[in-house]
């Protein structure tokens, strides 16, 4: 469902914000856009995961959009708020050097699903996607080298998930410790019991 206007009133924005790039995307591939809105003046668009690569390629190459810089890519765990939908979001922050405009793109990814990798569009996505995998366990289909980046290779949990415990030594954490295991750096990825 695509919505162009009216933009939501949010924060201290006085005029109704507009985005030429967002309008262009809505005009060209309205069926790929699930939802679009403005938050504090910044355009945010949610895209169907299956159409992501197509939409991103368009956003990078279209002369009116020209988003040549992928400023940031991150995962997000929504298990506490979005209980009925997919668990994760992947959020892309795009910037265009030529037009000096920004766009936030989001896709939803369920726990057992993989997001399409955008490394073929922006090389910089490589490490960002590795970090999102490392922190949330989100898989990226088509990534050339998906392995952990910040945590040790043997680590078997995903620290930025909301159910990751905040206290206790890893060794003593029953839920992540195999009974036969005595090595404090080995974990079993299992959600702790609440």
């Amino acid at each position: 469902m695509a919505t162009t206007e009216p933009p939501e009133e949010n924060g201290s924005v006085e005029q109704a914000p507009t985005s030429a790039a967002l309008d262009r995307l809505l005009a060209t591939m309205p069926d790929a856009v699930e939802h679009s809105e403005f938050q504090r003046g910044a355009p945010i668009v949610r895209i169907a995961p299956a159409r992501l690569l197509e939409a991103m390629t368009f956003l990078r190459d279209d002369p009116a959009c020209r988003f040549d810089l992928l400023s940031s890519l991150c995962g997000m765990d929504l298990s506490l708020t979005r209980t009925d939908g997919p668990r994760f979001d992947v959020v892309y922050h795009l910037y265009s050097v030529e037009h000096r405009h920004v766009l936030t793109v989001k896709i939803a990814v369920a726990e057992e699903q993989e997001a399409p990798s955008v490394t073929g569009i922006w090389v910089t996505a490589n490490w960002h996607e590795r970090e999102a995998y490392d922190m949330f366990g989100i898989g990226f289909a088509g990534h050339p080298d998906l392995r952990r980046i910040l945590m040790p290779d043997g680590f078997d949990a995903f620290p930025l998930r909301k159910d990751f415990p905040l206290e206790g030594r890893e060794k003593d954490h029953g839920c992540w410790r195999r009974p036969e295991d005595d090595d404090r750096y080995t974990y079993v990825a299992q959600a702790p019991e609440k």
């Binding site: 949010n10 924060g11 938050q39 504090r40 910044a42 945010i44 400023s71 940031s72 991150c74 997000m76 708020t81 959020v91 922050h93 910037y95 920004v102 936030t104």
Partner: peptide, 24 residues
């Protein structure tokens, strides 16, 4: 802060510093 999200970038000495905050 009221619910919503914001992505702010600044020019740090090493490049573009970004902070993405989502408030509930």
């Amino acid at each position: 802060p009221p619910a919503g999200e914001v992505y702010v970038v600044n020019e740090g000495p090493r490049g573009e510093l970004g902070v993405y905050l989502v408030s509930d």
